[in-house]
Design a protein around this nucleic acid. Structure first.
Lengths: 155, 155
DNA sequence: GAATCACTGGGCAACTTGTACAGTGCTGGT
DNA sequence: ACCAGCACTGTACAAGTTGCCCAGTGATTC
């Protein structure tokens, strides 16, 4: 899938995203063209989706994160519900899932009270029958992919 | 918190991350120094955490995502458990939560069978008493912050 | 043996960055 | 009414980076 050089390249860019291709080639001890080619291929293959800005919702004022499990009405299916959830800015992520619930959403709010408002918006979505919410109190491991990249690197 | 120009800047960088400061200033119709100052301040304040490469676990071979709710032994607290979970590469995110469970993890695997292996690793973590897993079947709304940025922008 | 592929190392023009500085217009304080 | 502070503009310059191209090398495949 990816090799050791790819993994080191991704690790480097992850640690210092603004360093650029030339600096990467210096640090990795390979030719600039090689880094350029690797990067291009990683992006082409979709391994690297992009280099978008990572926004911290907390710093935007949305200090509370919660996970909401939804049960939805069978008729109509998931898609219309997902579309309506997508219209709520505070809904940050939606999955359809196995198990007791039908969908799992990650949402944020400006506080517990504001979270209630967001949950009410979700409850009001047509097709949503029941919700159950857990609030994230702390995040000992924030989202990461680097260990995965290292694990996936086969020389 | 942030204003309209900040939001448009973030939106622009999100859509085309590689365009650079100069191109941003052209598209936003402001001076380059302004864009540079805004970007610096957004990063300084932590609103923008960085511009790291977004890696797609699926393209690395980890095609299955799941959410695992953990119940842990009270004695010892969350931290040692979190530390041991962090040592598992396939554990991509860990939260402590309210409600029935104590922790919520996002994990990935190379397939359903591989997921079982990861879950077994988690179950074996000292302090973990019970787990319950839901598999993500589809992701109609992938993680996003842009709508939040737009909602937070106050002119 | 020939073809293919990834990598090296070099060169070149065009562009971008970091930085600086003077000028302008708005805001809040006194 | 005046001033200081602040953000933005527009400009300038040197240094660095990018995108692109090319010839040569070594490993792998057919």
């Amino acid at each position: 899938m990816i090799d050791d050089l790819d993994a080191r390249l991704i690790g480097l860019l992850d640690a210092e995203p603004r360093i650029g291709v030339l600096e990467c080639s210096r640090r990795l001890g390979v030719a600039r063209g090689t880094v350029q080619a690797r990067l291009d291929r990683l992006q082409e293959r979709g391994v690297i989706r992009g280099f978008g800005p990572e926004v911290d919702p907390a710093k935007l004022g949305y200090q509370v994160t919660a996970f909401v499990t939804l049960e939805i009405r069978q008729a109509g299916g998931h898609d219309p519900v997902a579309a309506r959830l997508a219209a709520i800015p505070e809904v940050i992520e939606v999955h359809t899932i196995t198990g007791g619930g039908d969908m799992l959403c990650r949402i944020v709010g400006r506080g517990n009270q504001d979270l209630q408002r967001v949950i009410d918006l979700i409850v009001d979505v047509e097709g949503v029958q029941r919700t159950s919410t857990v609030i994230a109190l702390a995040t000992p491991v924030p989202q990461r992919t680097l260990p995965l990249v290292r694990a996936a690197a086969r020389p």
